[in-house]
Design a protein around this nucleic acid. Structure first.
Length: 898
DNA sequence: CATGTCACGTA
DNA sequence: CGTACGTGACATGC
């Protein structure tokens, strides 16, 4: 430690030399391979660990020069002299394949030379580099997991030798080597020759370890002295040495590192440069290294690319009065304008403090802080005017925020968040900085709060304008770039005619929220709490002590160690304690703890749901969920904060929660409308199976109908058991269910399941043909498509990894079915919204739960609304089968449901 | 304090 | 070894 700091203090020129293979292996074994893989199945743990280690080294040691040496697969002078050299090593693990290449690519992108030499090992390259570096007056740091490197240590050269893993790499100097091995570094090779090196398959002198070897070396001054006095050495070890003297001399020849190779790269080429940003971006995108990307750019400074991007962003004008605002729009308003709201965190959410605009050659900012009435009115006018075409990222969010200031946003012709989603629905994030990073290679930082203490001196307040203007500019660029990509993918209609109008509908639904009976909510909470307490007591009593019933880990100890119950399905952390397994255990053992535990699980889950709802009730007594329009890869919406799409319905206790969702004041009733079996109908349509289509046209009980054909009985003779089997199978098919999965679900044998599926497909062959063709086409095209042209790209259909490929195939099977159903209800929502407005009705949509809509009906409108909803939902798609809609009415969601 | 794992609710 | 989601508690790692 003190040695390395001394180095840093005395000489700024420093060469860092890394043994590529040995450090890649260290990284490989330090990080679990299964946790580091790209979506395409390429393992990256060695790459990740190596790059992480390198960045740490650069940050801590501040080298001026860096080089990485690699071995080649070709024979070296050592393997030629001693064919067993390094033999007997375990085969390279499969997961390591390709990672050396990737490391070399990263090095290239970082402008760090990688050096290989035919016939020589990385160790020799490193030794030569150390010698050359010293000769050039540099200090040298060698990073290697190979102890042979210790012979290189001098007062100018240190070795960084990893203790374990790749995060703990202390520097070794002469004193450290002596403290550990009792010899000076220059004698380490002698010691290693005597002791031998298992890793290199170099046996030494049996019975001689480091202690004995060091004793001899210090007594005779080194290996030559020992050999001269070989007959003077007494005892068993002396005999052993004399018998194995050939081993020792061979070892010494082999472990001596060459220091005079003709390297293909000079020291000057190793000077540390700034990485090639574009190459790093591309590579790290592919490797999915996001944390490392940030660390790397932080380390090297993040300016150059940004400076370039910054340069093309025109300096913004601050529009401080109505005249300036009108003037700017007069001059620039004919173009597409990027728009971005500047926001700050506020109590309970976010608040807009200004609006930024960007045309292709000008930018502007309007502050909402201390804005006068005239200016605000001028702003309101341009925001709401459809004469000004705007592109926004996240229209729904922006629309809602602006509306809090009484500003209505209209004339939005593009939402880059949705466009990016339609292009790549599988992306984890469609946030502006992520999309900008990928498509424009621009780093957009989220506006961050000023550091503590900074605020006090910043009398002008934080600058909201600059980052917002930057964002507006980026949105405009993205809009132009992504528009072309979307057209290529055939998604333009979906954007303009479905998703963007839907955003506005969703915004209204979110703002409306749904009324809550808070007194009933509290009652439920207390009731579930009582159930939890009861179950807890019974559970403790059953095992004679307390335990955290919410901790799977502690439950495993109780179930499988204390009670020694039969082991359940294996999971990462041991054995599962999930509901299905607990049920099995209960049936097999009847242990009272299991019953209590399950009761606790149920009540606790319900109380959690209730607690979540309680916290989400807004001051006016309604819950406002947020719909995520760009999350689900199939095209569905998702609901969050709170999630109102997973409110219990199956259990009696759970259904009571639906009673707290009630009709609000000023309205007459809630109305629910849901599609009956929409996914099966989509499947009937897409597969064009005559049997299914006819059944739906005749309005038959589908599962009964299918059951009669599969089991070859009259429809009225289909038992409940037959019907439920068929139902499970029909739905399973749309998920890529296997006979194994079906057998597990129905608790029948795999053979029975297989027969069931065979019978099914023999009657409904078009379904099988359709599903088969679906996957084939998806593999050929690289994507699946819904009835309305929504695509999902599934590159992993071509993966070599069977596991990944199978997952992709099931996703491909499901995406057009789930996705088409999602498209249909979205179209229905547009129809209902339009219909309500056209008829001048006050009733409104509140919730969407994938195949169900919940509306709040105003007094006297029930009949009209029901007819409208039936009509619009039924007409949302023109399928080969009718779309049946079931409607329910009631004062609560539970009562309105079915 | 952030991240991953498990479990579980819905369609 | 059935798709698509979101949430909360616990455990672990930095």
């Amino acid at each position: 430690m003190s040695e390395s700091t001394k180095l840093v203090a005395t000489d700024p020129q420093r060469l860092l030399v890394i043994d590529g293979h040995s450090m890649a292996f260290r990284a490989f074994y330090a990080l679990p391979a299964e946790n580091f893989a790209t979506d395409t199945g390429q393992h990256t743990n060695a790459v990740h660990g190596f790059v992480s280690m390198l960045l740490t080294m650069i940050r801590q040691q501040k080298p001026t020069h860096v080089a990485v040496a690699f071995d080649l697969d070709t024979p070296t002078f050592r393997s030629l002299e001693y064919t067993e050299y390094k033999a007997g090593r375990n085969k390279t693990p499969e997961e390591f394949y390709g990672q050396i290449d990737l490391i070399q690519k990263v090095m290239e992108a970082m402008n760090i030379p990688t050096i290989t030499m035919d016939g020589f090992e990385a160790d020799d390259i490193i030794a030569t580099l150390a010698a050359k570096g010293e000769a050039a007056g540099l200090d040298v740091l060698v990073v290697s997991g190979d102890r042979d490197a210790f012979q290189l240590i001098t007062d100018k050269t240190l070795v960084l030798y990893p203790k374990k893993g790749i995060s703990d790499i202390p520097p070794m100097d002469g004193d450290a080597v002596e403290a550990k091995y009792f010899v000076r570094p220059e004698q380490y090779s002698d010691l290693a020759a005597l002791v031998g090196e298992t890793a290199d398959n170099l046996p030494g002198v049996p019975g001689v370890g480091p202690k004995t070897a060091a004793k001899w070396i210090n007594l005779y001054g080194g290996l030559p002295g020992i050999l001269e006095n070989i007959d003077a050495i007494k005892g068993k070890v002396g005999d052993s040495l004399r018998e194995n003297v050939d081993n020792v001399t061979r070892n010494r020849r082999l472990n001596h590192l060459l220091r005079d190779l003709e390297l293909p790269v000079g020291i000057e080429a190793m000077e540390l440069e700034r990485p090639n940003r574009e190459a790093i971006e591309e590579l790290f995108d592919a490797l999915q290294f996001n944390t490392l990307r940030k660390r790397l750019f932080d380390l090297f400074g993040d300016e150059p690319q940004d400076a370039a991007a910054e340069a093309v962003i025109p300096v913004h004008e601050v529009l401080g009065d109505a005249a300036a605002l009108q003037g700017w729009f007069g001059a620039h308003g004919a173009q597409l304008l990027g728009l971005h709201a500047a926001t700050v965190p506020a109590s309970g959410g976010t608040d807009v403090v200004g609006v930024a605009f960007a045309s292709n050659d000008a930018t502007a900012f309007v502050s909402l802080q201390d804005i006068d009435a005239d200016t605000k009115q001028a702003l309101a006018k341009v925001l709401s005017s459809t004469s000004y075409a705007k592109a926004v990222h996240d229209f729904k969010g922006t629309y809602k925020l602006l509306l809090e200031h009484g500003l209505e946003l209209a004339g939005v012709v593009d939402d880059t968040m949705i466009t990016a989603y339609l292009i790549q629905p599988d992306r984890r994030s469609h946030e502006l900085p992520d999309i900008a990073q990928q498509h424009l290679r621009i780093a957009l930082e989220e506006a961050k709060a000023p550091a503590d203490g900074q605020l006090a001196f910043d009398l002008e307040g934080p600058d909201h304008a600059t980052p917002a203007v930057r964002a507006a500019h980026v949105v405009r660029q993205l809009s132009q770039l992504l528009a072309g990509m979307l057209v290529e993918r055939g998604g333009e209609t979906l954007l303009k005619e479905l998703e963007m109008p839907l955003s506005l509908v969703l915004a209204r639904m979110e703002m409306a929220g749904i009324a809550i009976d808070t007194a009933k909510l509290d009652e439920l909470y207390d009731g579930f709490t009582a159930s939890i307490n009861q179950a807890t007591d019974r559970a403790y009593e059953a095992i004679g002590h307390e335990v955290n019933l919410s901790s799977p880990k502690q439950l495993q100890v109780v179930l499988f160690e204390e009670l020694d119950l039969p082991r359940t399905k294996k999971i990462k952390t041991g054995f599962t304690t999930d509901a299905e397994s607990l049920q099995d255990l209960l049936e097999n053992t009847g242990h009272p703890f299991l019953k209590a535990l399950m009761a606790h699980r149920d009540a606790n889950k319900l109380r959690q749901t209730v607690e979540g709802l309680r916290k989400a009730v807004a001051p006016e007594g309604r819950i406002h969920t947020t719909y995520a329009q760009t999350v689900a890869a199939t095209g569905r919406l998702s609901s969050l904060n709170p999630n109102l799409q997973n409110i219990p319905v199956r259990s009696e206790a759970g259904r009571r929660i639906r009673e707290v969702f009630v009709v609000g004041e000023g309205y007459e009733t809630l109305l629910t409308a849901d599609y009956s079996q929409i996914e099966m109908r989509v499947m009937a349509h897409l597969s064009q199976d005559e049997g299914l289509i006819q059944a739906y046209k005749d309005g038959e009980d589908l599962h009964r109908f299918v059951g009669s054909h599969v089991f070859n009985v009259e429809p009225e003779d289909v038992t409940n058991e037959m019907r439920s089997k068929v139902k499970a199978m029909s739905y399973g098919l749309a998920y890529g269910l296997s006979s194994f999965g079906l057998s597990k679900q129905l608790r029948i044998s795999v053979d029975e399941a297989r027969t069931l599926m065979k019978d099914y497909f023999s009657r409904f062959g078009a379904v099988r043909d359709y599903l088969r063709k679906l996957v084939d086409d998806a593999r050929k095209d690289g994507y699946t498509e819904t009835i309305f042209g929504r695509r999902r790209y599934l590159p992993e259909l071509a993966s070599d990894n069977r596991q990944l490929r199978d997952i992709a195939e099931r996703a491909a099977l499901n995406a057009p079915i789930q996705g088409s159903a999602a498209d249909i209800i979205k179209r229905a929502m547009l129809g209902v919204e339009e219909g309500l407005a056209a008829a001048g009705l006050k009733s409104r949509m509140l919730l969407q739960v994938h195949d169900e809509l919940v509306l709040e009906v105003a007094a006297g409108e029930l009949e009209a609304v029901e007819a409208l909803v039936r009509e619009k939902m039924g007409a949302a798609a023109d399928l080969l089968v009718p779309l049946d809609v079931h409607v329910g009415i009631g004062a609560s969601w539970q009562d309105a449901g079915h």
